Computed example of a mutant assay.
Amino acid sequence: MTDDATARVLDRFLAELRALAPVAVWAHGSLAGGDYQEGRSDLDMIAVLRGPVPLATVRRLARLHRGLRDDEPLARKLHCSYLTPDTLAGAERAHLTWAHNGLMRRPVTPVTRRELHAFGLVRHGVPPGDLLPPLPDDELHAFVVRDQKEFWRPAVRKARLWKQDVWVDLGMVTFARATVTLRDGRLISKREALDLLPELGAPLDVVEDVRRRRYGDPAPPTAEWTMRRSELTRGYLGPAMDGLVAAYGVR
C-alpha cells in the first residue's frame, strides 16, 4: 500500500516510461516489502527495456527523471536501474541507474535479486521470475559476507561518517539484516531488523534513535548525542561485524 504522493510519482514515472515500451517494471526494497514510509524510504525500481540502450535513450531517461524530480519533490527518492533481457544475468554486471539525482552505472546486487524473486512488486509487464535468473544461495551468502567485511567494516574505522544519521541508520539495520540472511537464509525488513538489534546486543539508545527517525517524529540530535551515538555505534558494530564474518565467512 502506498500513500497519495508516492502513488502520484510512481504513476507518472510509469506513464512516461511506457513511451519506451518496457518489458517489465518492478519495485523492490521497502516499497515492495511492506515497510515503506513515505518521505523516508527510497522508491527502489527496476525497469527492463527491450534493448539495446543507445545514447539517445540514456538522454531521454535523464530528461524523464529530471522533469519528474523538478515537479515532484518525492521523486528525489526514486532510484531505478535499467536492464535489458540480454543483460539480466550476472550480479557483477553494472547497469545504467538513476540514483541520488544523477545517472551512474552500478550492479543489481544479489540482495536485490533475491528480493525481486521473493516479493518483487510488478508495476508493469511480466513478473521477475519470468526473466530474472534464480540466485544461488551461495552467491547471496558470499555477497553479504563480502559487504560486511569489505565495505561496512572499513567504514566503521572512519569516525567522521558516523556523525551522520544515514550511516548510523543503515549501518545498524544492514548488520541485523545480514545476520539473519547468513544465519537463516532469509531476508527481513528494516522494522524487523530494528526489533532484532537489542537481541544482538546493540545499544538500546541507538536503536531507539534509529527507530524514531524512521517511524516517529524525532527532534534534531544535539552535538553531544551525535558524538556519543557515533562512539556507541562504532564500538558495537566493529566487534559485531568481526564476529559475524568469522562465524559465516568460510563455507
Rank of each mutant, 00 (worst) to 15 (best):
P107V: 03
E115F: 02
V126E: 14
T112P: 01
A155G: 05
D169T: 13
T109S: 15
A91C: 07
H79I: 03
D169V: 11
R106K: 15
V122T: 11
D137G: 12
R69Q: 11
P133V: 03
R106T: 10
R69C: 05
W98M: 05
V173H: 02
L121Y: 11
A89M: 04
E150M: 10
P136I: 06
R106L: 13
T84Q: 03
V126I: 08
R114D: 08
R114Y: 11
E115K: 08
D137R: 13
A118F: 00
V126T: 14
R76S: 11
K77I: 01
L68P: 04
T112H: 01
T97H: 08
V126R: 14
Q148V: 06
P85C: 00
D71G: 09
L88N: 01
D86Q: 00
E139G: 05
H100Q: 14
E115P: 14
L135S: 03
R153F: 10
P110R: 03
Y82V: 01
P136F: 00
L131S: 05
Y82H: 04
P154D: 00
F151T: 07
L140K: 05
R153P: 05
K77P: 07
V111F: 12
D169K: 11
T97Y: 02
R93P: 00
C80T: 14
V145M: 06
S81V: 01
P73V: 02
R160W: 08
T87K: 02
R93I: 01
K77Y: 13
Q164D: 14
P85D: 07
V173N: 12
H79N: 09
P136L: 02
L96N: 00
V144N: 06
R114I: 08
P73C: 02
D86G: 01
S81R: 08
R113F: 05
E150W: 11
R157L: 15
P107W: 03
L116C: 02
H141V: 05
W152Q: 05
G120V: 04
P136W: 06
F175R: 02
E139R: 15
H79D: 15
L161K: 09
D169M: 12
G120L: 09
G102R: 15
W167P: 06
D138L: 10
E92L: 07
E92C: 00
D86A: 05
L135E: 04
V145Q: 04
R123D: 10
P127Q: 04
W152V: 05
T174E: 09
H141F: 07
A159W: 00
A89S: 02
V108D: 00
T87H: 07
L116G: 04
V156K: 06
R69H: 08
H95Y: 06
L161G: 01
A118R: 09
P154F: 06
E150N: 09
H117T: 08
T97W: 05
R69A: 09
L132G: 06
G171D: 08
D138G: 13
L121Q: 14
R76I: 04
P110S: 08
R69V: 10
L83H: 04
E139K: 11
G102N: 07
L83T: 07
E115H: 11
F143V: 03
K163R: 15
V111M: 14
A155Y: 12
L161R: 14
H124T: 03
P73S: 01
L96R: 04
